[in-house]
Design a protein around this nucleic acid. Sequence first.
DNA 1: TGGATGATCGCA
DNA 2: GCGATCATCCAG
Length: 184
Amino acid sequence: MILTADFFARPTLKVAPDLLGATLFVQTDAGRCSGRIVEVEAYLGAEDPASHAFGGPTPRSAVMFGPPGRTYVYFIYGMHHCLNFVTEPEGTAGAVLIRGIEPLEGMDLMRARRGKFLDKDLCNGPGKLCQALGIDRKCSGLTLGHGPDGGIWVLDRAEKPDIEASRRIGIRKGEELPYRFSIS
DNA sequence: TGGATGATCGCA
DNA sequence: GCGATCATCCAG
């Protein structure tokens, strides 16, 4: 089943581990890529100091306060993009950062976008997978689903994998919280 | 281990 | 406006 708003309209800390093992699809004019989600991080709302939603909405973070089941893509460090899915009911902020996938379809396209890197380094990081999948800020605020022109969507997993929780990566505040989830 | 590289946001 | 900060990646 393709995951819809109902799946994402739940607490972020429940949605994040439930995404592990699901399959992410990105279809553009260049073709279709897909991969198995193996690493995610949960970012909560106005009370999470590491979240872009901390302290309330800003122009950048507004989409996190909007309807669930949409994409939130931001530009970071002057050169990278990161892909998130908006969670929680409308009016409450939350998002799940996709940190790693295992490539399934479209590996030639991913290699072409990523350049001269080993296959194991194609999608094992939030910036890398956005580059491999051709995702940038134009892809932010999209509703997850397969439209006539392609799009971004997620196919639910068949079975629940073994999951481990750990600390989030690359943050300065809230780093003690075990909001990173990966397949063990 | 540090340099690249620019959007974002709080404060003035 | 200004500048500190940043949910990263890669070469050396």
